[in-house]
Amino acid sequence: MNIFRLAGDMTHLVSVLVLLLKIHTIKSCAGISLKTQELYALVFTTRYLDLFTDYISLYNTVMKLIFLGSSFSIVWYIRRHKIVRRSYDKDQDTFRHYFIVLPCLVLALLIHHKFTFKEVMWTFSLYLEAVAILPQLVLLQRTRNIDNLTGQYVFLLGAYRALYILNWIYRHYTEPHYVHWITWIAGIVQTLLYADFFYYYFQSWKNNVKLQLPA
């Protein structure tokens, strides 16, 4: 475990907990895309199938359980909680799941390391994670008025991705057999999707004005 990996995991953890705490405390999910949250729940479900077959470390198991639990909790809050679900802006969050899920599934069936159920699901989860933020980014652009917590949530997710790339570079030089081009390409695509958001996030921070994305 290197410092970039740990910082990346912690940023990821904080982003999810910030979101869950926000929804729990203010009983509102305004500005949050249910589509993105459902895609993340699917990402973690398909990626962590090895929870039942391989033991890596206590850290690994606990983190996997937290990501699974928190992502399903967030989806539950937005769909089922009697107060929270009223703040969900269904008409703005229009991205179709299958536009994202189907291409990722086809790609995972075509491009993978091993043709086994677990491996194809794992590969699918990498492709899916790369693009799962899209409904959220579309929603941010539509809503215009982005509250601080939603902005911080997306910023933390982007930071997590950037730290993982540093982690891969570090591991590439320190672990002789560390090779995984599928992870690298999916990860780089995912990080690039945040580039535009980052630009406006830093602009608003530098100029001390409220974050707004251009139409």
Partner: peptide, 10 residues
């Protein structure tokens, strides 16, 4: 190349 190591990541 055979992949290795990456499966310990989240």
């Amino acid at each position: 190349a055979e992949e290795s190591g990456v499966k310990d990541e989240l």
